[in-house]
């Protein structure tokens, strides 16, 4: 059981900007949900969380730690944050130095004062990490312009939820669609005021052009998805959030095929969303796959995937309600592990 101690000490510093160059490590956080965080969440031993409040384009952290720290940052909305807007960064081990976190990487950032949620995770059993100071660096006009461009070019996340809705783009916290609509409204307003309804064609053309402008931006992301997903599929046989589960399904089928005399039955042990279990169930059908995570009769295989707390001592597998003798068949890069169970 992980200890929930607060060995760190850090405190919020409201800044009065000190105009100086950022030194040492410059860090640009990335969207946490754009990569698999389960291995980080499974391996941390200690953590500390809190909030800092201030205005600035960068957050300079003075700290020391003999081991790297996984950091998470998000802009608080009231007392909570949107998990879809949580960002991850890595603080390298440092005997005593500073790291400058680029806050403009957060798409909801806009230069005004915010409360930021911060969380640090350490893999060390007894961490010596300490934060001596956190200060915001003043926002410049260049920061605002740079952030605007960065925000517009942030790729729409390709999530499992994307088939239901798309987040869209925000520039300094304002939806890009709203900005474009305002601009379009101004332009067609001017045209209509000057020419009245005689200007039907120009107005409709402006409306079409505005729609295409947004579409062009999204089409860039479609190209990015095409290149990225084909590349990873052909090189690593992984795909998006599913990652190695296609290889897992193939490995399961192959192992089951080695024992045709046995009536196979697979159980998937996982946390949070059942997406991964359902994917495996689909690709394995008609081999029955249970996604209950419970001890069931006649199980021949157990797949552990996206599970933060489980253990295997070489003989006994403990995962959820499953506590059974098992033999590990294969582990995968995404942390999934495949086990076969001895027949009773």
């Amino acid at each position: 059981m992980k200890s929930i101690l607060l060995p760190f000490s850090f405190f919020a510093v409201l800044l009065f900007a000190i105009p100086c160059k950022a030194e040492n490590v410059r860090i640009r956080p990335v969207l946490a949900l754009s990569s698999d965080q389960s291995s980080i969440l499974a391996s941390y031993k200690e953590y500390s969380e809190g909030s800092v409040q201030g205005a600035g384009s960068k957050l300079r952290i003075s700290y020391h730690s003999s081991s790297p720290l996984n950091g998470y940052i998000a802009i608080l909305e009231g007392t909570t944050y949107n998990p879809a807007n949580l960002y991850h960064f890595l603080l390298p081990a440092d005997a005593g130095g500073t790291a400058t976190i680029d806050l403009t990487a957060l798409t909801t950032w806009n230069g005004s004062a915010h409360s930021y949620y911060l969380n640090f995770l350490s893999d060390a059993d007894d961490t010596d990490a300490e934060f001596s100071q956190m200060q915001f660096l003043q926002t410049t006009a260049g920061d605002l312009i740079g952030a605007s461009l960065q925000h517009l070019m942030q790729v729409e996340p390709y999530w499992i939820s994307s088939a239901h809705f798309l987040r869209g783009y925000t520039i300094l916290g304002i939806p890009f669609s709203i900005l474009l609509e305002l601009l379009t409204l101004i332009v067609i307003g001017i045209i209509l005021l000057r020419k009245g309804t005689r200007a039907l064609a120009p107005v409709l053309c402006i409306l079409i052009a505005s729609t295409f402008l947004y579409a062009l931006r999204f089409d860039v992301d479609l190209l990015v998805y095409t290149e990225r997903h084909l590349n990873e599929w052909w090189r690593k046989h992984t795909y998006g959030e599913a990652r190695d589960l296609y290889s897992v399904s193939d490995a399961l089928k192959n192992d089951i095929a080695l024992h045709p005399e046995t009536s196979a039955s697979v159980n998937v042990c996982f946390d949070s969303t059942d997406y991964y279990a359902k994917l495996v169930r689909y690709f394995l059908y008609p081999i029955p796959v249970s996604i209950t995570g419970k001890q069931e009769d006649k199980m021949t295989h157990v797949l552990v995937t996206r599970k933060t707390q489980w253990s295997y001592d070489g003989t006994i597998l403990h995962c959820g309600e499953i506590n059974q003798r098992a033999k590990r068949i294969q582990t995968f890069n995404d942390g999934s592990a495949l086990f076969s169970l001895p027949s009773s």
Partner: peptide
Amino acid sequence: SGLFAAGSFGVTWFCLACAMLL
């Protein structure tokens, strides 16, 4: 928000509404 601000439809609904009105 889903009609006019989010990313599922971009500015399509807004432009469509303007076009239909005209």
